[in-house]
């Protein structure tokens, strides 16, 4: 994104701040005992002031109340959410982001305040505005903007009964291929299986992954005291020197520890899936998959030999085989 494109996007999105998302809307159902009971049943909430009228009558509540955390439930549009939603200001704003590549969306926070307990018969009207949009932020998910939407709830007497701030991140996914996969349906209408999660490459470790892309596992070495270290980092833990070079590993090693991933099965990974901590003969340790044998046959101390291999369309990884290595 060029600075001009960014400026253009930010002008467009900031014009949304303060805009009402839709006219104040009264909930489709007023607060009512059956919906409260259904909610409590599923969430396992046994609080008798929600569902036991006799108990509630005698309690300090003086009658049934709704769980305060149901406040937003009274405003939900329901089954039409399954279909293509109608355009409103919020969806228009999301579309502006989408058109600039910020196609990811993630709810990150909600902050609710409840000013009074609601009772069956109360009417809930929702008012909703785009409250704020952050500066551009670098997040773990990718570069994006936080949008805060403010919901204010009023009752049949126009009294405020609570509010909710909902914070959403609109972002450019770090792995843009993953996001593309969602549009890329196969013939049967099912989404394509995603590939493996891409290695996170930053300032201090990208060189290491680039060497793997070219078939080599490198080990960082301090230039002043020659201590080897892994994973890559800027400073030597022994002498605090920031000067470093690297050596290539022979990929001879043994299993220091290992685990097998059973659940959940991530699309794009082969199962059974064994992950080992490998003690390399050079002295550093490396986390990698152990392949070429049954998971039951993996033992601590087992001698292994690594090979850098292409494991999917776009991923090169070191993988470790039990000795003797099958020479192909």
């Amino acid at each position: 994104m060029t600075p001009e494109e960014r400026k253009d996007l930010e002008e467009k999105i900031h014009a949304f701040v303060g805009r009402e998302v839709s006219a104040p809307t009264r909930g489709l159902d007023d607060v009512n005992a059956p919906m409260i009971r259904h909610y409590c049943e599923v969430l396992g909430d046994e609080n008798p002031v929600y569902t036991d009228a006799g108990f509630a009558e005698k309690s300090s509540k003086g009658g049934l109340i709704a769980p305060p955390t149901m406040l937003q439930v009274w405003s939900m549009e329901g089954y039409p959410m399954c279909q293509e939603p109608e355009m409103d200001v919020q969806r228009e704003l999301h579309k502006v982001f989408d058109d600039s590549g910020f196609i990811g969306v993630l709810g990150t926070n909600t902050t609710s305040e409840y000013y009074r307990d609601l009772r069956p018969g109360d009417q809930v009207t929702t008012h909703c505005v785009i409250d704020s949009i952050s500066e551009q932020k670098a997040t773990a998910r990718g570069i994006g903007y936080f949008i805060e939407t403010l919901y204010t709830f009023t009752d049949q007497n126009d009294e405020e009964i609570g509010k909710l701030v909902f914070r959403v991140l609109k972002f450019i996914p770090n792995d843009s291929n993953e996001a593309d996969a969602s549009d890329d349906s196969g013939d049967d209408g099912m989404p394509e299986t995603p590939s493996r999660i891409a290695s996170p490459r930053g300032h201090d470790n990208a060189w290491w992954w680039e060497a793997v892309d070219n078939g080599a596992v490198l080990i960082q070495r301090c230039k002043s005291c020659k201590t080897l270290r892994h994973p890559p980092r800027p400073m030597c833990g022994e002498c605090q020197s920031m000067e470093w070079d690297s050596i290539e590993s022979s990929l001879d090693g043994e299993v220091f520890s290992f685990t097998q991933i059973h659940y959940p099965k991530f699309p794009g990974y082969p199962y059974p899936l064994v992950i080992g901590v490998i003690s390399l003969s050079e002295g550093t340790r490396l986390i990698a998959n152990i392949v070429g044998c049954e998971p039951e046959d993996v033992t601590i101390g087992m001698k292994v030999k690594g090979k850098v291999e292409q494991v999917d369309e776009k991923t090169m990884l070191p993988q470790f085989y039990p000795l003797p290595v099958d020479k192909k």
């Binding site: 909430d45 509540k61 990150t108 902050t111 609710s112």
Partner: peptide, 26 residues
């Protein structure tokens, strides 16, 4: 998730308590 935040605390506090707010980070 927001509902479980509330339920967890009222399970402990009892029926005469009153939830005033929930801030939730996902």
């Amino acid at each position: 998730s927001n509902g479980f935040m509330g339920r967890f605390v009222t399970d402990w506090a009892g029926p005469d308590s009153t939830i005033k707010g929930v801030s939730l980070k996902l």
